[in-house]
Amino acid sequence: MTTLESPPSDNDSAFDEPVGKAGDKVFFGLSFGAAALILITLAAVAFFLFIQGLPTFTGDGTELDGDGSFFAYVGPLVFGTIYLSCIALLLATPVAIAVALYISHYAPRKVAQTLGYFIDLLAAIPSVVYGLWGITVLAPVISTSMFPWLRDNLGFIPVFGSDVAIAQSGRSTFTVGVVLAVMVLPIITAISREVFLQTPRLHEEASLALGATRWEVIRQAVIPYGRSGVISGAMLGLGRALGETMAVAIILSPARGYFWDVLTAQNSNSIASNIALQFPESSGLEVNRLIATGLVLFLLTFGVNAIARRVANAGFSGADG
């Protein structure tokens, strides 16, 4: 048995010497300050955009082109933004779900890990790279192969048929939609894959024990469980597509107005792309107007993200029921 010296007991048993109080104060101050700065930053974002956007409405409209009405200016841009993003989402979501299911339930485990890593990497490739790829590789290919085919065979649908000629360069809404789809696909895939992998093993095994095939397991257990996750992933992808700037700015051939036909060289621009294209050349009230459109984009994405979060929260809390 080891002998222990009796610990020094009554010489320094004062509890009222504060210990590390100063450090605690500083550290708490830093943390609280950082958190408070988040609030201040967002208030500042809204405030400065508002202050700098305001002159659009109060200033002398004749300085601007058109009739100077802000809503006439921003309307086609809002349309273009939403139109492009919806095309992207329509193309990307079903494919992303299938790919996510392939990675989570079909690919061998080792392969699946590598694929997941690869998908994450693709989500991080800068958008300017996707833009360059879209204009250099994709646009020429699909404008010569797909565009005539779509016009000839599906021309009865207004989206593919109009009096305006097909864009030979491929710099049309459709091409941008495809590029945006390629860009948001990794995001939707990554989130869907994660929720599919979280499907309770028990649900899947219960289904398997009933003699279900793999597809039946997916239909009965995996998809119902992951539905809200997939929806919120798609909404996040939508948020990304709404704010996507460079790919649109590089590829699209924009025009003023509302255009439904996705195959021509006359296309409604997106807000973000319009800012990127106009900003370097703008001055005075034009800058204020662009900032005001930025505020509109901010509100638009804010709305979409709010819906995404609501869907995700509603889904996950009810997922066990």
Binding site: S13, A14, F15, D16, P18, V19, G20
Partner: peptide
């Protein structure tokens, strides 16, 4: 109360208490 001091006395630092 330990050694004549109340752990919950007004000037007592809980961090110091835990060292004892």
């Amino acid at each position: 109360i330990i050694n004549g001091k109340d752990l919950y006395g007004p000037s007592v630092d809980p961090v110091a208490v835990r060292r004892k």
